[in-house]
Structure formats: structure tokens, C-alpha cells
Amino acid sequence: MISYLIMALFILAGTMLYQGKWANLIAGYNTLSKEEKEKYDTPALCRFYGKMMFVISFSILLWEIGDALGSLLIFMFGTLLFIVSVVFTLVYSNSGSRFKK
């Protein structure tokens, strides 16, 4: 039950971020000054993190499906997807100047 609540919160946050809202939920971005925030392409940053929230919520769904079906393979695929997406997000968003104007 708690997993479904967490998944719903991730989908809600992903939807809001994808629409360009709730940018202050992005770690590090919320601590920038107004002048520093203007240097970033906020809509692109929000869209990227919104998509990543959808991927993470899908991995949580795979955990629940794997648990319900008793399939370790589906559960492990969800875990692999989660780990790869988190590592990708950290590397992609912090390397280079992808989201700077």
C-alpha cells in the first residue's frame, strides 16, 4: 500500500515538473540565488527531471508486479532500472552544461 502511495507521489511530482512547475523541488536548484537561476534553462531542467520521476515510478510499479506475481526476474529488472536511472540522472545532469542557457 505504501509503495502505491509513493508511486502516486512520484507520478504527481513528475507531472508537475514536466509542466515546468515545482522546480524548487530539484535539489541544488532551490538553493541558487535568483541571478543564478536565470542562468539555467528551467523548463528543460524540469522536463528532464519529470521524465526521470516517471521512470522511477515505473520501476516501483515493476517491484509491485514482481512481488504480486512472485517473479524475482521482474523485481530485479525494476531494481536494475531504478539503479541505472538514478545513476544516469546524476551523471547526465551534473556533467557538462546541458541545462545552462
Results as ranks from 00 to 15, higher is better:
residue 12 L to M: 11
residue 93 S to Y: 08
residue 83 I to D: 03
residue 90 L to F: 14
residue 66 G to P: 04
residue 28 G to M: 08
residue 88 F to I: 08
residue 37 K to T: 00
residue 34 K to Q: 11
residue 77 F to K: 03
residue 53 M to N: 14
residue 45 L to I: 05
residue 35 E to R: 13
residue 15 T to F: 10
residue 36 E to L: 06
residue 89 T to Y: 04
residue 53 M to Y: 11
residue 51 K to W: 07
residue 64 E to S: 12
residue 53 M to L: 15
residue 19 Q to D: 04
residue 2 I to R: 12
residue 8 A to I: 11
residue 65 I to S: 12
residue 20 G to F: 03
residue 67 D to K: 15
residue 83 I to V: 15
residue 80 L to I: 15
residue 24 N to E: 13
residue 92 Y to L: 09
residue 21 K to M: 08
residue 33 S to W: 01
residue 91 V to A: 11
residue 97 S to C: 03
residue 23 A to G: 09
residue 8 A to W: 07
residue 33 S to H: 04
residue 48 F to T: 08
residue 37 K to R: 15
residue 72 L to T: 13
residue 52 M to F: 14
residue 63 W to M: 07
residue 71 S to E: 10
residue 69 L to G: 01
residue 94 N to C: 09
residue 31 T to L: 06
residue 96 G to K: 08
residue 57 S to E: 11
residue 94 N to F: 15
residue 44 A to W: 00
residue 98 R to W: 07
residue 46 C to M: 01
residue 17 L to Q: 06
residue 35 E to F: 06
residue 73 L to A: 14
residue 4 Y to E: 12
residue 100 K to F: 11
residue 37 K to L: 02
residue 29 Y to I: 01
residue 90 L to Y: 13
residue 59 S to E: 12
residue 20 G to A: 07
residue 29 Y to T: 01
residue 51 K to V: 11
residue 94 N to D: 05
residue 38 E to L: 03
residue 93 S to H: 05
residue 32 L to N: 00
residue 99 F to R: 00
residue 9 L to D: 06
residue 85 S to W: 05
residue 60 I to C: 01
residue 30 N to S: 13
residue 61 L to D: 01
residue 22 W to R: 05
residue 92 Y to E: 07
residue 3 S to T: 14
residue 32 L to P: 01
residue 90 L to K: 10
residue 43 P to V: 03
residue 99 F to I: 00
residue 9 L to E: 07
residue 19 Q to E: 04
residue 1 M to G: 15
residue 46 C to E: 05
residue 10 F to E: 08
residue 53 M to E: 02
residue 2 I to D: 09
residue 70 G to V: 08
residue 48 F to V: 14
residue 27 A to S: 09
residue 89 T to L: 09
residue 71 S to N: 10
residue 49 Y to H: 13
residue 6 I to M: 13
residue 87 V to G: 08
residue 8 A to E: 09
residue 76 M to N: 13
residue 31 T to Q: 07
residue 4 Y to N: 12
residue 95 S to R: 10
residue 83 I to W: 09
residue 64 E to F: 04
residue 7 M to T: 07
residue 54 F to E: 02
residue 51 K to E: 07
residue 47 R to C: 09
residue 73 L to C: 04
residue 63 W to G: 03
residue 41 D to S: 04
residue 90 L to T: 13
residue 95 S to H: 13
residue 13 A to F: 06
residue 69 L to W: 14
residue 81 L to F: 02
residue 67 D to Q: 14
residue 4 Y to A: 13
residue 42 T to D: 00
residue 62 L to P: 02
residue 29 Y to K: 00
residue 101 K to H: 05
residue 17 L to A: 04
residue 19 Q to F: 08
residue 8 A to H: 06
residue 41 D to W: 00
residue 97 S to H: 12
residue 8 A to C: 06
residue 45 L to A: 01
